[in-house]
Computed example of a mutant assay.
Amino acid sequence: MTTTTTSARRTDPFQGVRGTPGRGAPGGFAGAIACEWTKLWSVRASYLCVLAGLAITAVFTFYYASIARINAHPMESVGNAAASSAVVTQFAVVVLAMVTVTSEYSTGSVRASLLWVPRRHRVQAAKALVVAVASFIAGIVYAVVGTAVAWGAFDGRASFEAGTALRQALSVGLYLAFVAVLTVGTAFVTRHPAGALSILVTLLWALPTVLLGVGGPELAAVNDYLPHGAGDHFLRVGIEAPYGPATAILVVMAWAAAAHLAGLYVLRRRDA
């Protein structure tokens, strides 16, 4: 009996130590996901980001619908207000996803993460999946709240169809999930919040604003293949677009995949 116990301790030196995984703890990718989920919701910043996105959605959709009512715009889907708010609310998701990576590099705790999950692709994939799921759920809630707020502000100048509203709510969630994956990949490339935020603000807001502000069909065509340009075509209904929703979400997915692969390359090539 003593020999068996001693052997077990030698093969598992951390067994019985508080705060370390024992034999019954989940391992592999499932364990990495559980770890990242716990870390995400154990800090106040995550809740603040979600609440900020909710507040921004309410304000933006009320403003959008009020302007449409005052200017007597042609009737459109009430869900377009919530879909349009993604241009702003996406940055709540950007911050939420970014800090899951950059905070670990700033504190040095990324070394502990890579010690417990030595396969680096699992660390990045777990972070990306966790923030994508959280962002998907948050996006649906944002869309539902935004649609409700906009319905009152439109004051009868918008149409409501349950199927269309549901589709747009799911679309907002899906778009924000891919923005989260894009952010995680970018954060692993830069390893610094200022660098990651600069790139993402430029890509998701500043560059599209410049392209559309300067005008011209050529620049507008470039914007159509940027993440938010494609996302806007995916989210809104009744708006003229150069391609369909399926192509639009594929463009967004391609950007997210490119950022994920770039982040994985840097993570594997550079020391923590």
Rank of each mutant, 00 (worst) to 15 (best):
V251S: 03
G238Q: 12
L235H: 09
A246G: 08
T247M: 02
L226S: 07
V237S: 10
A256I: 05
L261M: 10
T247F: 03
A257K: 00
G229L: 13
A254I: 01
G229Y: 07
A254H: 00
H228L: 07
A257W: 00
V251Y: 02
I239D: 14
M253W: 06
A248I: 06
P245M: 13
L226Q: 05
L261V: 15
A220S: 14
V237G: 04
A241I: 01
L226R: 06
A221V: 08
Y225A: 12
H233R: 06
Y243G: 06
A258P: 00
H228M: 14
A230C: 08
E240V: 04
I239Y: 15
T247L: 06
A230G: 05
P245Y: 13
P227Y: 03
P227C: 06
A248W: 08
A241Y: 01
A248R: 02
Y225N: 14
G238R: 14
A259C: 09
H228P: 03
G238Y: 05
A254K: 01
H260I: 04
A246L: 11
M253T: 11
A248S: 15
A221H: 07
A246W: 09
H228A: 06
M253E: 13
V252E: 13
H233P: 14
G238S: 11
G229F: 01
E240N: 01
V237A: 10
W255N: 07
A241R: 04
H260Y: 11
A246F: 08
G231M: 04
P227W: 05
H228Q: 15
H233Q: 15
A221W: 04
D232G: 10
P242T: 14
Y225G: 10
A254W: 00
Y225W: 07
A230M: 09
V251Q: 05
A248G: 09
V251T: 02
E240T: 02
L261Q: 03
L250G: 06
M253K: 00
V222P: 15
P227D: 13
D232Q: 09
T247D: 10
L235C: 01
Y225V: 12
P245E: 12
G229C: 10
D232T: 14
A246N: 10
L226P: 12
G229M: 08
N223S: 14
Y243T: 12
A221I: 11
V237R: 11
V237F: 03
Y225H: 15
G244K: 10
A257G: 04
G231V: 12
A241M: 02
T247C: 01
I249H: 06
L250Y: 01
Y243Q: 09
A220E: 13
A254G: 08
H233F: 11
V222A: 10
A241T: 00
N223Q: 04
Y225Q: 14
W255M: 06
E240I: 04
L235I: 03
A257L: 03
L226M: 13
T247E: 11
D224S: 11
A248N: 07
R236F: 01
I239V: 14
V251L: 00
P245I: 13
T247R: 02
D232P: 02
L235M: 07
G238T: 12
H233E: 15
A259H: 06
G231D: 13
D232S: 14
L250K: 06
